[in-house]
Design a binder for these strands. Structure first.
Length: 230
DNA sequence: AAGGCCTACAACCGCATGTAT
DNA sequence: AATACATGCGGTTGTAGGCCT
């Protein structure tokens, strides 16, 4: 909805941390009137804040259903996995973590997870250098596995591809490649140590590599790198 | 006890996109 | 089609509190 700028009184806008009183006003207003035009919310709620600031405060802290406790290992693992697939798409990542906001996940990433990943990358680089590991062709996993597909897979527990798949559990640092031969299937498990995704056939004509025919390549996967390299 | 440093988290800013006029 | 405005997103900054010297 567009608002005539002349209808909006110019208030001196407050910035910085929200007081409990401001939060109370905002919560009360939205609970009573519902979500509408954010630019009108501060006017009607009696707040000297921008609509943008109100929106952020509501989304990140006031709306119902938000978790305020610390991130679990399971949540950490989901973030690491999705970040490997999607990059800094915090809003998309947050869709897979009920009760968590994109801002919260972003902060958690920068304050904790990023360091963890950097540490692991350093150590894996050192070990791969020691092993004389060959360079692997690079593709972006997210390019072919869309978020929707992932979400469907996650919620239904169904396999993306039922046969001819290569299984890999990244995030848990455990490569599960033994099932390539017998073709058995995994569902998306709850446990941190069983966060598993399936890689579909990698066809040369679509610029992907056929990892089924190159088990050695699969076995060369190691934790974080696997999100980016096949 | 005081000051400096570090970390986690809250909030802001700029940009992109969508939509109504 | 052009414009103005709302909304959403990601990067960045600001700040409070804890820890260390």
């Amino acid at each position: 909805m567009r608002i005539n700028s002349s209808d909006k009184p110019k208030l001196k806008q407050k910035r910085g941390l929200w007081s409990p009183d401001e939060a109370h006003k905002l919560r009360d207003y939205i609970m009573n009137h519902g979500l509408g035009c954010w630019s009108l919310v501060p006017i009607h709620a009696g707040l000297q804040r921008s609509g943008k600031s109100c929106r952020l405060r509501w989304i990140n802290y006031l709306r119902p259903g938000l978790k305020r406790d610390t991130f679990t290992l399971h949540e950490d693992d989901i973030i690491l996995t999705l970040h490997g697939m999607l990059g800094n798409k915090w809003s998309q990542i947050s869709q897979h973590l009920p009760g968590r906001t994109d801002n919260e996940i972003k902060n958690h990433w920068h304050s904790y997870l990023k360091k963890k990943v950097d540490k692991q990358t350093d150590s894996s680089l050192q070990s791969s250098e020691a092993d004389g590991c060959r360079k692997l062709p690079k593709i972006l996993f997210a390019d072919w596995l869309s978020l929707d597909q992932f979400h469907e897979f996650q919620t239904s527990g169904q396999s993306l591809v039922s046969t001819g798949t290569c299984y890999y559990a990244f995030g848990s640092q455990t490569t599960v490649m033994n099932n390539i031969q017998d073709g058995s299937s995994y569902s998306f498990a709850d446990s941190v140590d069983h966060l598993q995704l399936e890689y579909a056939h990698q066809h040369v004509e679509s610029n992907f590599y056929d990892i089924i025919s190159d088990v050695n390549t699969c076995q060369n996967f190691n934790n974080i790198d696997a999100a980016y390299y096949l």
